[in-house]
Design a protein around this nucleic acid. Sequence first.
DNA 1: CTGAAAGCGCTAACAT
DNA 2: ATGTTAGCGCTTTCAG
Lengths: 349, 349
Amino acid sequence: MPRKITIHQIAKEVGLNASTVSLALRGDPKVREKTRDRILEAAKRMNYEPNNLARSLSNGRTRIIGVMLSDMSRFYEESLEAVFTLGEAAGFTISVRFCSWDQAREKAGLHSFVSNRIDGIIWGPTDYNTAEIAEMDALLHKFEVPTVMYGLPDDTQSLHCYQIGLDMQKSIQVGLAHLKSYGHTDIALLAATEVQGMFGRMYRRRMAMFRDAFIAEGLHLDDRRIFEVGDDNCGGLDLALKLSQMERSQWPTAIFAADDLLARELVKSFKTLGVRVPEEISVIGYDVFPWAMGGQLCSVNLNTKEIGEKAIQMLLKCINSEHPQQFDQRVEVLPQIRLGTTCGRPRSR
Amino acid sequence: MPRKITIHQIAKEVGLNASTVSLALRGDPKVREKTRDRILEAAKRMNYEPNNLARSLSNGRTRIIGVMLSDMSRFYEESLEAVFTLGEAAGFTISVRFCSWDQAREKAGLHSFVSNRIDGIIWGPTDYNTAEIAEMDALLHKFEVPTVMYGLPDDTQSLHCYQIGLDMQKSIQVGLAHLKSYGHTDIALLAATEVQGMFGRMYRRRMAMFRDAFIAEGLHLDDRRIFEVGDDNCGGLDLALKLSQMERSQWPTAIFAADDLLARELVKSFKTLGVRVPEEISVIGYDVFPWAMGGQLCSVNLNTKEIGEKAIQMLLKCINSEHPQQFDQRVEVLPQIRLGTTCGRPRSR
DNA sequence: CTGAAAGCGCTAACAT
DNA sequence: ATGTTAGCGCTTTCAG
């Protein structure tokens, strides 16, 4: 038996024409059931595997959706799962590229998507380098590859692609506003700075966003209220210890932890040290780990699952439609407070 | 300008034949530099993007390497990065599929690889379901898709694929042996059991491996020496607290933490509680986070980077060679102890 | 219901 | 150095 089976060989085997085989393999009702069974049997017996290159070249679509991500952060996990589930249900294969926060690699990956005539792209762009994004956007548009970008700030109206808006700074403000609603004004920031990884840039950007968010909410973020810990430390424990050696009157009344794991550790450490949360100090987390502390943690929920769902739904609509223009070009996903037990009114002084 | 540019249109534009354009685009020295420049200029101006479907259908290779992974665990991060770097340097695009620990999805993904005539596959199989693996292995072999599987135990000689052997149980034994070499025999296990995630199966398997490893090293693992914590707890802190309320004579002399983050937290918590590590108790970590504690942590290093490097190197050799059979079919990656400051001789009783 | 023929965009001999 | 021709494997009219 030759190495790679084609429909012609199957056709010869069963004494029919290749085009009939082609129809049968795709379950076209034009082929009589009996003939189809014969064909399918032969195909299986001969270990036939369709050649998507030929198929796609011929009919003009690949039934593949490409997803471009920067890294394997858990931030993407939930949304990617949604993309898989809904995408596969609609008959698409999901192909992922990672760029490791490298713009050259990102560009190459997107090019590979269009070269391989992917049917649509979901893109969580690396960085808000407007010019670069605009350039790729123009290219993708020129090739008429439906594209959904997500995690975009709101100054991107000029882009052609569809967008899932997620305003990170506003999401931080949501957390701050929540604290303010309890009466907190002296809020500290606990942030991890992963030095070793490739996320340095992201962390720096996030830090800048925190500063801006404080300002936007009319809050003062004193440098001495910023606790930066390396990712190889136990930031929560360190901070709890540090505070326990300070006069309580010197404490902030609330702590905004830059991620849920830090927040979790902080709360647990406070408990260990006999500090009551939220009676003596409030803690709010951020992003990524909805399951941290079994729902006890008060935290800003970025709704990543919803992001994934909206992205794939938008894309599928777009791919299946003749007139994609009729859809909203941008959908906002709103962060919300995930209520827990770790925030309360500030202690009276 | 028509929507999708082909080499024929470029050819017409510059008054040459399509095959010349084809050669020029690939930088073939047969075409004169001046002509090539003209062609490239036109291609860029017309926004030409090569059609890999046609290209691959014609020349029989896609220059794409497929990677099949179960999830976005950080376990894969380092090895995947190595695959990217070396793979791209060799001119390949790396396309990733995730199966979320779902065998149907895994199978579909591998089929999509062969349908799309990927040049080679790197596969970190979900589970050691021998029959399923053997079936896919046979299929991939029949289609002559060079495949490297990794993370395989050593009872898989019958497979056709190339293999990066990583014996997880032995890696645990390496850690245990290290503790034994200091004189530890009363060793406790600290393990997280992520209930919410999709990793339940993996955790259970890992737990079984720990038990087997203890037995293989001639150690007794009492049930009361197993501390299982949910992933939404702070396991390290909890355990440190628990122990601090016990008579020291009841303590184990060493703790094997099932991952580095737990170990890190444990060590930090001990420090907080005034317990000296390793003078009063030794701690060893496992896997995944080489940077945890800035190298202070003594831990079992799974060498995931090396796994990725070996996998892609094997695959490239195989793809580029006429006679792949001449290479070793299986390479073992050996876990090692990453020395730190958290292990020492047991306290005298 | 099945067969014949053209073509998707590109490559690879072979000619010129 | 450039042009001609014949596919790669499949889909898709269009005939029968």
